[in-house]
Amino acid sequence: MTTESKPEKTFMGVDRLKIPWWPRIDYDKCNGCDGEYDCLKFCPHRVYKPLDDPKRIEVENPYNCVVFCKACQKMCPQDAISFPEKSEILKLIKAERGTR
């Protein structure tokens, strides 16, 4: 198993659990690619979990998501995936580093 969460992980020296970076799903758009789940197939980090009824995707392991990576967003045929603003996240990371 590789999906267990590892809270000791850091990104740029900041506890990963303090960085709110993961995909947000627009459920008005997501249709689970009619059962194909392109994002699920694409992402090797086991961030996603497929739901069956109705077919759509769910974020199961948000902290497995690679900070600043938005590759799955481009794979989505429905344009249903979005991410936070990188500049805001970077600001947060710098602030966290400053307080250590």
Binding site: F68, K70, K86, L90
Partner: peptide, 8 residues
């Protein structure tokens, strides 16, 4: 092109 840290 100007890219910020963390940008693609």
């Amino acid at each position: 092109k100007t890219v910020e840290l963390g940008d693609e």
